[in-house]
Write a protein that binds this DNA or RNA. Structure first.
Lengths: 338, 338
DNA sequence: TTGAAAGCGCTAACAA
DNA sequence: TTGTTAGCGCTTTCAA
């Protein structure tokens, strides 16, 4: 039924070795004539090499695995695009899975990737499976961790400068005349990003003459259905707030919902700066000021680094790449009119 | 270095056969004692079966491939979620790639999937590689086509009822008092969906007492940077238009941009109904009336059908599943005030 | 209940 | 330049 390398060899009257060489573009040991002959029979028989057999023999599959934690957030779609494009360019295929922030699923998928002998793994970790990540690194399994840092784990990272992003956003709000600024953030002690963004907020206030008593921090429960209600309560109880710095694009949507419901005007009643540039941000009325993260670039660099460490003979020193976010100023944070 | 089934066998003083049976949960031929012994050594040695070797032998990989055409559109993220979850539930892993609507890339990826012996393929086709799809079907390669129909190709489809979705949306606009309704659509003669949505628009007008002379159809170039300009021109040249039926969520965003720029008020100056419910639709001001497509369900049914046809001995008759869209009414199409 | 042995399709060291 | 041969790690038939 299936055409194998043996069928081609027989048909072309050469050995399997010769066919193998030609299939793999290794023409150095072959006359032009046999090359042509073999190429022709390959075409005639519509021969397709079996990647499983090849992988079994060569212990390399040219497949990479990626573990994401949330498919809904469009930021990850951008990262995935970068990953996918780069894989294609460099001749790799991609296995994808979604841990949905659950430890067990993450562990199961990593195990699965190893069983399938993927050449390397890109992961946005739940952060909580420390032994799992550590194990991978100890066994020298090619791995790049993206977006989140894992405390005290030496590894290859591609992450964003979250402190700087938040700092820039909050300072912009101060510069446009806001004095009472709140930050909205998910509570999750494992994810460094969110703490870093709050840290950026704190720093911006402190370095601009404010004190810790000016901090206004609202922590929200990520999985909750009641996020908008929490935001409504908060805004009603703190009518002096002039601006919200939102650390996540899903939170931003809920803020906008709450603002609509309260009949507030943006930016006069409340200015908004939001993390993550999205497809829709510039189409809102008024358009949203956002902090754009280079997600595509993150995906690209992760794959490039991964493939580099796959190809390297000896273990490389772990490296951390930090990417810079960029503030995109739009009308949701226009200068305050006095 | 790597632990193989042989290492386990040696360590446990049994044959490879016995280990193989136990690894695969086949305990029928084994005493409780050897089972325990083997299970223990597997754990001790941290043995991981090699999926490549297994696949080579059993000619089945438990991997599915999916070819998407556009990662940016959040509709596809939803579909992907359905696909991913269902794969996980049914014990399959997923390879993903993005054709980006390009024929050559689509063909290359399909070839790659076959080389890797994925057990089946889910595809949102560019529609233009007819021979490629036909070839797959002739060779009885498990395949499910989602979202788009390919003319005169008998295959397994999971698609949406686009005529009905558009019909419902346009009729809703008529019912709320609009008489001059335009439809905005991408021009692409290959994609049935868009033609079907225009068809739904036409039908809704005709069945409600309008004639072909009332049709207002704006075709837009998908890859163009000038979409908003085209929309602006159109709206300025046709000031009598009371409502826009947008067949795509990206077009909708451009319409909103144009509306903001012209200073029009929604829904009084212009009502909007848009294809595809999105994360952001309900947070706009005013919230958008949309047509929700069951993308998650589409992904789920595609995978379930695919696995069914993988497991079936004899070839099943091709089946087409049509999913129903749902109109979500919000303020962007509020009743017209006279 | 257990195991020996053949072979899945391919690669590569070595020989010719 | 070309081919022979020995596996890669696993499953499975058949025999013990």
């Amino acid at each position: 039924m299936k055409i194998t390398i043996g069928d081609v060899a027989k048909e072309a009257n050469v050995s399997k070795t010769t066919v193998s060489r030609i299939v793999n573009g290794n023409y150095a040991h072959t006359t032009e004539e046999t090359k042509k002959k073999v190429l022709k029979t390959i075409k005639n028989l519509d021969y397709r090499p079996n990647a499983l057999a090849k992988g079994l023999k060569s212990t390399t599959t040219n497949v990479l695995g990626i573990v994401l934690s949330n498919l809904k957030n469009p930021f990850w779609t951008t990262v995935l695009e970068g990953v996918e494009d780069t894989c294609r360019e460099l001749g790799y295929n991609l296995m994808i899975c979604n841990s949905n922030e659950e430890l067990e699923i993450e562990a199961e998928y990593i195990r699965e990737f190893r069983t399938r002998r993927v050449d390397g793994i890109v992961i946005n970790p739940t952060v909580q499976n420390y032994d799992l990540y550590n194990n991978l690194i100890e066994e020298n399994y090619p791995l790049v961790i993206v977006n989140r840092r894992i405390p005290s784990l030496e590894a290859n990272y591609v992450v964003m400068d979250n402190v700087k992003g938040a700092y820039t956003g909050v300072e912009h709000l101060l510069n446009t005349g806001r004095k009472k600024i709140a930050v909205f953030v998910y509570q999750n002690s494992y994810v460094s990003n969110w703490q870093e963004r709050v840290e950026g907020y704190r720093l911006a206030l402190l370095r601009n003459g404010y004190s810790t008593s000016d901090f206004r921090i609202l922590e929200l429960e990520q999985r909750s259905e009641r996020i908008k209600d929490c935001i409504l309560d908060y805004l009603k109880n703190n009518p002096d707030i002039q601006a919200v710095f939102s650390t996540n694009n899903m939170i931003t949507l809920e803020v906008l919902g709450a603002v609509n419901e309260m009949g507030l005007t943006i930016p006069d009643d409340l200015a908004i700066v939001s993390y993550d540039e999205t497809l829709w941000a510039k189409y809102f009325n008024p358009p949203l000021t956002t902090i754009r993260q280079p997600g595509y670039k993150m995906g690209q660099l992760a794959v490039e680094g991964l493939i580099k460490s796959i190809n390297e003979e000896k273990k490389l020193d772990p490296s951390t790449i930090v990417l810079e976010p960029e503030l995109i100023i739009r009308e949701s944070s226009d200068k305050l009119q006095q």
